[in-house]
Design a protein around this nucleic acid. Structure first.
Lengths: 203, 203
DNA sequence: GTCTATATTGTGATAGAC
DNA sequence: GTCTATCACAATATAGAC
């Protein structure tokens, strides 16, 4: 299904995604979105009255990609180590498909933290179930003592950060060599879970 | 030394920092910077001809805070584990002082990756010395086998990410409770180094 | 060096024909 | 629904007096 098969409203949303996610709310231009969608500015306002409304639609989708869905995985009854491996791999795969999402969402959230509250009230993000599982494993002596939220944040950090910091890593470490950078990022799907598990497992 | 003791050029730069770092290049307004500096717009252009020039001055300082200096520490001959502890604590302390720096630099770099090249050509950032030290420790069997660059990126991720993602962490995990969030971030100065060392040390 | 006033351009949004 | 033309205002930048 190519872009021409979409109806106008969908075409606009797709164009808006591609522009907003790279340039941000304030960096994006309605003209550029119109060009990208192959229509004119007036039509943008016909479907989405204002720039802000169009942005909201884009942001919501991006945020859902970054945070929930994947969070569901943390509630299953999979064994802890398997869950960590699965979570990290799935998450990193999402960013391979959408490499600009992390930087986009982080930036727009820090520009307008209130948006988070609005988004989260609809959806129930609840890391407590996963935290409980970690605490239980600690209690049973299966893993080393650790604050579950420290572990969760570390996990998120190692998944998300490299995509938000892509230019700096690519340039400084890999001297702009696209191929070895890509290889490096691929390897993280295995390296990161092992790094985490090594840190918490008891001998 | 209060703000009034600074000369005009310094006052402008301080004002520009405080505005650009929170709002970004495209979100910042020259009027707001002028107000913050206690002068008018015309004077901004007298000292720094354009918004872009003023931004460059701010960005350079912020980037230097995020990346070098601290990198020097990685070249000393301190033992590896001490070095990791020292690096993480110092780095996190910098962000406690400048919590908006991570998000600002990451965003502006991804908006304009070329800037990195310009900045780095002046300064020599060389992670290889630290990578060599890690490789040597692996060879001696003192730590588990690991790609040094994976380790470095993990370390940076765990230091930088929580500051770039502050609103999301604060809201979702700590339900906007400022105090327990702050405590959590403080604890990372000890938790993160131990997390890393636990992962790589050989029994 | 510093100000007020103004020029100039960019950009979101609307009117109105088809 | 879609277009062209245009409005209205915001924002960077400059001119020129003091």
């Amino acid at each position: 299904m190519t872009k021409d098969d979409l109806n106008t409203e969908q075409k606009i949303l797709e164009a808006a995604k591609s522009v907003f996610i790279v340039k941000g709310l304030e960096g994006a231009r309605m003209q550029e979105i119109a060009d990208e969608a192959g229509i004119n500015k007036a039509l943008l306002h016909y479907y989405y009255r204002t720039k802000d409304k169009l942005f909201e639609a884009v942001f919501r989708e991006a945020f859902y990609k970054l945070v929930p869905n994947i969070v569901e995985l943390l509630k299953t009854d999979m064994p802890l180590f398997d869950k960590i491996r699965h979570f990290v791999k799935t998450y990193i795969d999402i960013f391979f498909e959408n490499p600009f999402i992390p930087g986009f969402v982080l930036h727009e959230l820090s520009r307008n933290p209130q948006r988070i509250v609005n988004l989260i009230s609809n959806i129930g993000i609840e890391p407590k179930v996963f935290a409980d599982q970690i605490n239980e494993e600690v209690r049973l002596g299966k893993i080393k003592p650790i604050d579950p939220y420290q572990l969760i944040v570390n996990m998120l950090a190692m998944c998300i950060f490299p995509f938000a910091a892509t230019p700096i890593i690519k340039n400084i470490i890999f001297k702009s060599d696209e191929k070895s950078f890509h290889q490096f990022m691929l390897e993280r799907k295995d390296e990161v879970p092992e790094f985490i598990i090594n840190s918490i497992k008891n001998e």
